[in-house]
Nucleic acid binder design. Structure first.
Length: 424
RNA sequence: GUGGGCGUAGCGUAGUGGUUAACGCGUCAGGUUGUGGCCCUGAAGAUCGAGGGUUCAAAUCCCUCCGUCCACCCCA
């Protein structure tokens, strides 16, 4: 059994019965981006590894231990893309998108790759719907992205989600805050959990969202960033909140919201299902990243964006049992018998399809009964029966497969128009 | 990357040391001359995730690996 090949760890096949979810997602993304005026961009599946080492940050887990980095046959240091943002920024610089009317509003739907331990909602190859606005520092645009993000889920029929909104200020102010945070925690070091002692050295912000009860108690007295933002960041944050309120988008301010990526500044947000205990349940997250483009070699250019994990969205769609469009079924199923019947059946099927009627044909070599069973199982509304008799008489029996199953003979040349009328 | 649970036909399960591994769903074929659904009959389909070990005997016990799920880490 295991001699058989299987999907690599953390990857999955998307079988036909899963496709309705993906179709719904693609349609929702297309619609919501159209409504907000975002244009699609697609970037390569692999990029220069240094793009992420610089852009994402070489101290982030993504770069340190999750990149599918490799040297190609020519020795180039490449990596499968772990996140879209640096790639889109690279494209922005490479193609001079700064010379277009600013800001540029872009989106993509793409595969991402991160080498980590798979879990439900955490795969090594996964998909993201990603929106980025490059070339403005307007608070309005942060709010626009959050609204677009929110409307995407709404359009998919998801409910009971919550927007958690925060601000992590600008780099200088954040450094000052981090110093204060360290000052607060240093005397408490011995009381912290082992993990959090490590966080204290590596990433003090993480102390704030520790799950350890002891750490959570200590957090009570910790300084918060959101209450003490620099004037510019505070004003920006107010702008985001005001705009969201004006747009009628609900949110909760989360003073402890910590985003993992180094490049974020000011606005950060995350959208999570309410009351889901699982850890991997955040369906999407975003933030402002004014420093990123400069980091990867461009002129200082403000930007903001978000990504949503589509496999996680599907998990949530299933959990909430969102209704999907009917699975695709043929309109007609052509059943045949005998050599003449086959010939006529193929002709009829061709005519039907030309007329826009979705038509399946019974496989030759199957019994009549088997074909009828298949016709029924296909979900087709009508069976078109062409046997020896009918072929000779130049007709086909048109049979309604619902309920009783009335049937009538119709001349071969008139089947398409007759069926067309019935579907009208 | 760390710790733990699980792994029997396509799917869902039964079987916990002893004859040819069972059931439901699904698939395929039939159920008299060319008519589906319901029903009936039959068939195919599993080296019991893989490899090794213990034993007269292993789906069942042990080890390793693989996969999956959960927690951690982190994140979409």
């Amino acid at each position: 059994m295991s001699a058989r090949f299987q999907t690599p760890r953390g990857t999955e096949d998307v079988l036909p019965e899963e496709q309705p979810y993906w179709r719904a997602i693609h349609e929702a993304a297309a619609e919501v981006t159209r409504l907000f005026g975002y244009e699609r961009i697609d970037t390569p599946t692999f990029e220069d590894a240094a793009l992420f080492e610089k852009g994402t940050g070489d101290t982030t887990d993504i770069v340190e231990k999750e990149m599918y980095a490799f040297a190609d046959r020519g020795g180039e240091a490449l990596t499968l893309v772990p996140e879209a943002t640096p790639a889109i920024c690279r494209a922005y610089l490479e193609h001079g998108l700064a010379s277009r009317p600013q800001p540029v509003r872009l989106f993509t739907i793409a595969r991402m790759f991160r080498y980590n331990r798979p879990q439900l909602g955490r795969l090594r190859q996964f998909h993201q719907f990603d929106c980025e606005v490059v070339g403005t520092d307007a608070a309005l645009v942060d709010a626009e992205l959050i609204e677009l993000h929110w409307r995407f889920y709404e359009r998919l029929g998801l409910r009971d989600l919550e927007i958690r909104l925060g601000s992590i200020d600008d780099p200088e102010a954040r450094r000052a805050y981090l110093d204060r945070l360290r000052e607060y925690y240093l005397p408490l070091r011995e009381k912290l959990s082992e993990d959090s002692r490590r966080r204290l050295d590596r990433n003090p912000l993480r102390l704030l969202d520790s799950n350890d009860p002891g750490d959570q108690a200590l957090r009570e007295g910790a300084p918060t960033m959101i209450d003490d933002l620099s004037p510019a960041a505070a004003e920006h944050f107010e702008g985001v909140k005001d705009t969201l309120t004006a747009a009628g988008v609900p949110f909760v301010v989360d003073p402890l919201l910590v985003r993992g990526l180094d490049y974020y500044n000011r606005t950060v947000w995350e959208i999570v299902p309410k009351g889901d205990g699982r850890q991997q349940s955040s369906v999407g997250a975003g933030g402002r990243y004014d420093g990123l483009i400069e980091t990867i070699g461009g002129k200082p250019t403000p930007a903001s964006g978000f990504a949503t994990g589509l496999e996680r969205v599907i998990i949530e769609m299933k959990r909430q049992e969102v209704s999907l469009v009917e699975p695709q079924v043929p309109d007609a199923f052509v059943v045949h018998a005998g050599a003449e019947g086959v010939r006529a059946a193929v002709g009829v099927a061709a005519n039907l399809r030309t007329a826009g009627i979705a038509t399946m044909l019974g496989e030759a070599g199957r019994s009549f009964r088997a074909q009828m069973r298949r016709a029924n199982g296909s979900g087709a509304r009508y069976a078109v029966i062409v046997g020896e008799d009918e072929a000779v008489r130049g007709v086909a029996a048109l049979k309604d497969l619902r309920e009783e199953g009335d049937q009538e003979d119709v001349p071969l040349g008139e089947i398409a128009t007759r069926l067309g009328e019935r579907f009208r």
